[in-house]
């Protein structure tokens, strides 16, 4: 008790303004404020989102086993082969043919289990999903043009007439509305610096480069409000370059599209060339 009394005054600095306050703030308020803590990315809302999870957890299992083996092989000598009187290391340069074969076999087997297996699945995923950009001519495909800038997302949809560069193009800023269950195909470019369109719930990410058009796609399978983030450093307000992605059931979406197209036509100004940034969809 007396020792505690002796120590306590020396801890007074914790209460001082320059260290104590922020320290207490950090340890208590920030933790407490985060009420619903999240430990993963949440449920995938796109049709290919499950592929990320399948592969992620497959790799996690493989990697965990491999790492556990490494730690085990590190721990055994530490516990068993410590220096002590009368103990001598075994003399082995690992030069024998047997050792060479063992090295080669273990490396190749590890490669096949750890890498080749994952590689094959990843190739499949790329061809069937991530890089299988849907045909723009297909009426099922909902096409969106993205023009990124510091620090906002400009989205342009063709409107009811289905054609870009016309009066009824729907232009939204930091909010994108798409129909559920239809593939959404993006053509993207940037006005200034490189950005990256990141839809975390859709497991989709693609850089948005100035000077060239980058393509990507996803198919939402859940209706609701989702997140749009920028994933490529684009200046000091990079962290604020977020937006909202609204996925609507087809019926609701049609209503919204008709309304938005009508509004767009009334506000259309043919002389405002600055606003006419739509470009042709080729291929």
């Amino acid at each position: 008790m007396s020792m505690l009394k002796a120590i306590l005054p020396s801890l007074a600095f914790l209460r001082s303004r320059w260290l104590g306050c922020p320290l207490a703030l950090m340890l208590t308020s920030t933790w407490a404020l985060a009420q619903d803590k999240r430990w993963g990315p949440g449920e995938a809302a796109s049709d290919y989102g499950y592929r990320f999870h399948d592969l992620f957890w497959l790799i996690t299992i493989l990697v965990s086993v491999a790492f556990a083996l490494v730690v085990l092989l590190l721990a055994i000598p530490v516990l068993r082969d410590r220096e002590r009187p009368g103990h001598r290391a075994s003399f082995d340069h690992g030069k024998s043919l047997h050792d060479k074969r063992l090295t080669a076999v273990i490396s190749i087997v590890t490669f096949i289990i750890l890498d080749a297996w994952v590689l094959v699945i990843a190739m499949q995923d790329l061809r069937e999903a991530y890089w299988a950009i849907p045909d723009a001519e297909d009426p099922q495909t909902y096409r969106v043009e993205v023009l990124a800038q510091q620090w906002a997302w400009n989205f342009r949809a063709p409107g009811v007439d289905g054609e870009f560069g016309t009066a009824d193009d729907i232009i939204t800023i930091n909010e994108l509305v798409v129909p559920k269950d239809r593939p959404v195909s993006f053509n993207m470019t940037s006005k200034d610096v490189i950005h990256a369109l990141f839809l975390p719930e859709m497991r989709m990410k693609r850089d948005v480069n100035p000077g060239s058009i980058n393509k990507t796609w996803f198919r939402p399978i859940t209706a609701g409000d989702f997140t749009i983030l920028c994933a490529e450093l684009c200046g000091f307000a990079h962290y604020q370059m977020s937006g909202k992605l609204r996925v609507l059931e087809q019926g609701l979406f049609n209503e919204w599209e008709a309304e938005a197209s009508k509004l767009a036509s009334t506000a259309f100004d043919a002389d405002d060339t600055e606003a006419q940034w739509a470009w042709d969809w080729e291929e």
Binding site: P41, R51, F52, L55, F56, I59, L62, V63, L114, D115, V118, L119, I121, A122, D125, L126, Y130, P200, R203, M204, K205, R206
Partner: peptide, 12 residues
């Protein structure tokens, strides 16, 4: 690094 070398997981 395997997660990041694999494009399927690297995209996210």
């Amino acid at each position: 690094g395997i997660y990041l070398a694999t494009i399927g997981t690297d995209i996210f």
